[in-house]
Design a protein around this nucleic acid. Structure first.
Lengths: 335, 335
DNA sequence: GGACAATATGGGATCGATCTCACATCGGAG
DNA sequence: CTCCGATGTGAGATCGATCCCATATTGTCC
């Protein structure tokens, strides 16, 4: 592998001058610049990234830790991250925390130790205090995505869960539904809380309160959607629409309804949340609230990249809008 | 950030001795070892990964370039890669090539320049020759996953596409189907060819040939599944089963059948390939050939990690088995 | 013509580790 | 008692870049 010294010898100049040409800063005469560029081309020289990073303390690498890159949701988010980082000419390194604090800690420390210029975090729980200290000591800017805040974060990007849930319930109300069920997720997730508030706001617009609908608490999982729906049907609870806390639940809801012989949307309307990968494959194709996951990732990465340029700036926050995606699972309320 | 020199001063020893303790090699007296370990703990010392990599020429990092990490398929594969690399205490850096040769080239060179110890590749086309040369010059071992071979690869991991397709068609034949349609993917993909051979083998077992079934060539996409199926129905082609080249196609097939008023599996049986993320969400839940994507990734990463230990070893190859997943979309042939 | 800023170039310290080599000490074998 | 291998330690070169500083060489203005 050719080094900067090889180039300098071949071009008959000093290391310093080559460095100036490569980094494109400082004064270099046109003549030498050309000679150096030629030498670089002839030798196929590419600077040693490690040495550059070690000396300059800039690695041109962005790190990210998300809950689990193996899921379509986070994969899509990573897609957004890559888009932004690639545009800025920076490399991206992604790890999974698997919702385990120790695993998360290890992943973050790994990124710090590899001298990432900045770090993006999407975690389910607060970052361990000793890790916060490590990040702070390394003076690495952090942008949080989604749920958890963090004292060390210089910025955050969040979904408008409130507005999304409000839009979902408003849509059901507009279609004439009044006997509504809401299946909500883990009670200690910020998402869940914000979505419940959105539900309440939509009801209020129609002069209703939470007591006018049925809320069932559970978890963001297909099985919960199935069991909760089955139970409501068994109990003889009379409802015309279900707002599922997310599309996984909605998949379970649809299955339970089908098994009970109910047809969607003529007997019961169903609306989900996320516009997950499988939403269009459900039957009927699911009407849902789209969460632009890749855009969230891209926005967060862009925010971080901007933060790198301005060391002392104030913390910022961006809220990403949702969008109602109308497919076939919601219809007018039966009488 | 504490450096090795800080540790050595605090423990009253030389840099070299600290290095020996950290790397756990060479001779160090128990007494000094303890003093050094204490100093490390007190200072919260973590070695500078960049400096280590620069000097020792080992980065403890594995690189991977796949077609697109944003899709569930590759996300799942990355999950397998992470499992293996984390177990080996190595970091993983993943990029997408987006089926674009220049983009791929950039991604691979990036990994080479960051001194990855080894590289994993899942690409749709052959690697650009100049990139092959760069990999060779850097003497970085490469393991290929899936489709394309590559002269520089020291190993490869592939799915048993032949066996999978054979199992799919055999299953249909066992259920009494004889009027079978096969929708196949891009003709220039190795996967497609191998699957076609598998189909042929299954037919041969039952004394049949390819002329006894109908093969429609297209691409691995839901829309093709939909249009091809609709066209066959319009033409009045009489069939009792469809083997879709992958689950995306199968989703389109199911949709087209439903729109044509056919019920699955009583009118037509459908079997897919991949056991993609959405297979269980389709209606009816799709019977398909499972491709253990994460296992493929894990196997490839393990192979690469092993290769790192033994520089001169011969190229190796592993074939990963598929598995028939029986759900509800295949039934006995109607008469 | 001298002062000073702008342009141009190279020398050498530095980043934080690894690793070779030289050297010291010790114990046991011959 | 000497020799030698095993054990223990440190000095210093090195990896491949960046970047500060010293030193020319210009050109321009008063």
């Amino acid at each position: 592998m050719a080094t900067i010294d090889d180039v300098s010898k071949r071009a008959g100049v000093s290391r310093s001058t080559v460095s100036r040409v490569v980094a494109d800063n400082g004064y270099v005469s046109e003549e030498k610049r050309r000679a150096i560029q030629q030498a670089i081309a002839e030798l196929g020289y590419r600077p040693n990234t490690l040495a550059q990073a070690l000396r300059s303390n800039r690695s041109n690498m962005i790190g990210a830790v998300v809950v689990d890159v193996g899921t379509p949701y986070f994969a899509n988010m990573v897609y957004g991250l890559q888009r932004a980082t690639r545009r800025a000419g920076k490399a991206l390194m992604v790890s999974s925390g698997y919702a385990d604090q120790d695993e998360e800690a290890r992943a973050i420390i790994e990124l710090v130790d590899r001298s990432c210029d900045g770090i993006l975090l999407y975690l389910e729980r607060p970052v361990r205090p000793d890790v916060v200290e490590i990040i702070r000591a390394a003076r690495i800017p952090v942008v949080m995505i989604g749920r958890m805040g963090c004292e060390v974060a210089r910025g955050s990007v969040q979904l408008d869960n409130f507005g999304g849930a409000r839009a979902a319930v408003t849509f059901l109300l507009q279609q004439g539904h009044r006997r509504i069920v809401h299946l909500s997720g883990q009670a200690d997730f910020g998402d869940t809380v914000a979505r419940l508030e959105g539900v309440e706001a939509a009801l209020r617009d129609y002069g209703l309160t939470m007591t006018d609908i049925r809320v069932v608490n559970g978890i963001f999982h297909q099985d919960f959607g199935y069991s909760a729906t089955s139970k409501l049907l068994d109990e003889g609870h009379d409802f015309t629409a279900i707002f599922a806390g997310d599309d996984d639940m909605a998949a379970g809801v649809l299955l339970a309804l089908r098994h009970a012989g109910k047809s969607v949307p003529s007997d019961v309307s169903v609306i989900g949340f996320d516009d997950a990968f499988h939403a269009r494959h459900l039957w009927p194709p699911l009407t849902t609230i789209r969460q632009p996951v890749d855009e969230i990732g891209e926005t967060a990465a862009d925010m971080l990249l901007q933060l790198l340029g301005e060391p002392g700036s104030a913390a910022r926050q961006t809220i990403i809008d949702t969008e109602l995606v109308v497919r076939d699972s919601v219809g007018p309320a039966r009488h």
